[in-house]
């Protein structure tokens, strides 16, 4: 489903991705952890070409993401993305946020889009907030709506970039519950998170990144039983403590 082969990326002089090799199969859930600045966000942002790569090969859903002929908007329909800062559209209600892409990209009628939006808002547990603007919602509610919005295009892959880092403890759980359900349904997911509990229960593999490289890539159980790499063990120790 997602295949990185020797992928490199620079921001000017900064070598952010230094030869990434990573495969994510259909229905697989892969968690990426690693210190801040190690390139985790950049890595998942290459999957829907929010960040272009400099060299190597990246195939998503059977298409070379960085080929010149690729219709990037087409590609992005199949890849949902959830951000740390939610990024809900403040001028639209919750339902309108979810309806925007189905209506304007897929050309669904207002009625059909509304029905689908209500289904998704029910799925994330807040159908009663359909007609409320984001500013009047809690962070947890906003992030759940952002997940519903990303799901509205029926993506085959979901990318999560630290979806709970901006949330208070009591809201983290409601967001993780939604993500856990998605994982159970067989969604292919690439998740940057430091929520060890989520990784342990919901992921198939854990990838540890440091300084633009993948240092360790292990099945979840093995990773938590004892990471092979010293750096990964140290980092895990820090994350679990606090």
């Amino acid at each position: 489903m997602i295949e990185f082969e020797d992928v490199h990326k620079h921001f000017g002089a900064l070598h952010v991705l230094q030869g990434i090799d990573l495969r994510v199969a259909e229905r697989e859930v892969v968690v990426i952890i690693g210190p801040s600045g190690s390139g985790k966000s950049t890595l998942i942002r290459t999957v829907n070409r929010m960040e272009p790569i400099d060299s190597g090969s990246l195939v998503v859903n059977g298409t070379q993401v960085n080929a010149k002929t690729v219709d990037v908007n087409r590609l992005r329909r199949d890849v949902g993305m959830v951000f740390q800062s939610f990024n809900l559209f403040p001028h639209l209600t919750a339902a309108e946020n979810v309806m925007l892409a189905p209506r304007r990209v897929r050309g669904l009628s207002e009625k059909a889009a509304r029905e689908r939006a209500m289904e998704l808002l029910t799925k994330v547990g807040i159908p009663e907030k359909a007609d409320v603007h984001p500013a009047r919602l809690s962070g947890g509610q906003q992030q759940r709506i952002a997940i519903a919005r990303a799901l509205a295009m029926d993506p085959k892959i979901m990318l999560f970039d630290e979806p709970t880092s901006a949330l208070d403890a009591e809201m983290i759980r409601e967001v993780l519950d939604v993500m856990r359900d998605l994982a159970k349904e067989g969604m292919t997911m690439l998740v940057v998170t430091h929520e060890v509990g989520f990784a342990r229960e919901a992921s198939d593999r854990v990838v540890f990144m440091d300084a633009g490289r993948i240092i360790e890539d292990s099945p979840t159980a093995e990773f938590f039983a004892g990471a092979k790499e010293e750096r990964a063990r140290q980092f895990l120790g820090k994350v679990i403590k606090h």
């Binding site: 908007n73 951000f83 800062s85 990024n87 559209f89 892409a101 990303a150 295009m153």
Partner: peptide, 14 residues
Amino acid sequence: DKGQIEAARSLGLS
């Protein structure tokens, strides 16, 4: 906010 633009583009909007 740049995040707004990214969110819109990530949904497949041109």
